[in-house]
């Protein structure tokens, strides 16, 4: 491949009045270097693994064939195997519940907090900054802390609920199959709220005060102003936060690893964790790849919606 990286032939002609030095820095040469570096990085570390993953999902891959590219092509067998398992229904449903509830709660709480901190009371910016703590913590650490909080016998959560008289019996947050998934959702909502809040705060701050004042003069009360001014003007941010929230939630792996390992008996298993289990615990790598390809299709749809919503923003 011949890439015109040479800087001499793209040197700007205006350089004659200048000393020779800045032509690389200011000219098109550096632009090209930066573009090709980025492209190269994306191809090597994102595109190739993605394509390789798709290829593997159509092959029979096990521990003996993992080192070679020449593996038997099995068509849609991996997909059929994955979709016909008894646990599949539960896991797909769990994934939908996990994503749906997580995103809905993150969005509602994050938007509520963003609106609250928009009120500019003393210390509001400091407090808002504190909320970021949850977001910058490594997922495994968050999972470790929550597994202590939610521990059945000695967890703070059960102690608090019993001390305040809300429940009399201990709740087995992590080992009750009907509750385990919701425990992970609670921890995931805690992780995702700051991101939602910050992004939505930025959007709220961009709405000029005088537009609200004009609406006030036009006779709109608080609720009408929220419905007819805030919500429509936040459309792009809401679209971005929802699509990114879905993508981030589909990526959420650490919390499952730290809290429930998908158990008990797949009670809290979701597709991203299942894909990992198939590939790296059962070494059915082709099937694990098939699950992740199915997830990629979902993410592509969501990403398309996200791109559309930000394009609308640029037009505005």
């Amino acid at each position: 491949m011949t890439v015109p990286l040479s800087t001499t032939d793209s040197m700007p002609t205006v350089g004659t009045i200048r000393a020779s030095g800045p032509s690389f820095r200011d000219g098109r040469g550096l632009d090209r270097v930066l573009v090709w570096l980025t492209l190269g990085f994306l191809v090597a570390f994102s595109a190739l693994p993605l394509v390789y993953n798709v290829v593997m999902s159509f092959q029979s891959v096990d521990l003996f064939t993992i080192a070679s590219f020449d593996r038997p092509f099995v068509g849609l067998d991996n997909y059929k195997a994955v979709l016909s398992q008894r646990a599949t229904g539960t896991i797909v449903r769990n994934t939908a519940v996990f994503v749906g509830l997580s995103v809905a709660l993150q969005l509602t709480i994050g938007f509520g907090l963003a609106l609250y901190f928009q009120q500019r009371f003393p210390g509001s910016t400091w407090l808002r900054g504190l909320f970021l703590a949850g977001w910058i913590m490594p997922g495994l650490v968050v999972g470790g802390v929550w597994s202590w909080i939610l521990a059945g016998d000695f967890g703070v959560m059960n102690w608090a609920l019993q001390a305040t008289g809300i429940t009399s019996d201990k709740i087995f947050w992590l080992s009750d199959p009907s509750i385990a998934l919701y425990s992970v959702i609670i921890a995931n909502v805690w992780v995702g709220v700051p991101f939602n809040m910050i992004l939505l705060s930025v959007g709220l701050a961009a709405i000029p005060d005088d537009v609200y004042e004009a609406a006030e003069m036009d006779g709109a009360g608080r609720i009408w102003r929220f419905l007819t001014i805030t919500l429509p003007l936040m459309r792009a941010q809401l679209g971005a936060v929802i699509s990114l929230g879905i993508i981030f939630t589909l990526q959420q792996f650490d919390l499952f690893a730290a809290l429930t390992q998908g158990g008990p008996s797949n009670g809290s298993n979701v597709m991203q964790y299942w894909s990992w289990e198939l590939s790296f615990q059962h070494y059915r790598i082709g099937q694990g790849a098939a699950v992740s390809v199915l997830m990629i299709l979902v993410v592509i749809c969501v990403a398309a919606i996200y791109v559309r919503s930000t394009r609308h923003e640029h037009a505005a």
Partner: peptide
């Protein structure tokens, strides 16, 4: 029940 014209016009952009 007053109407106001703002310096920045404050039109509803959407």
């Amino acid at each position: 029940d007053l109407a106001m014209v703002f310096q920045s016009y404050a039109l509803y952009p959407h």
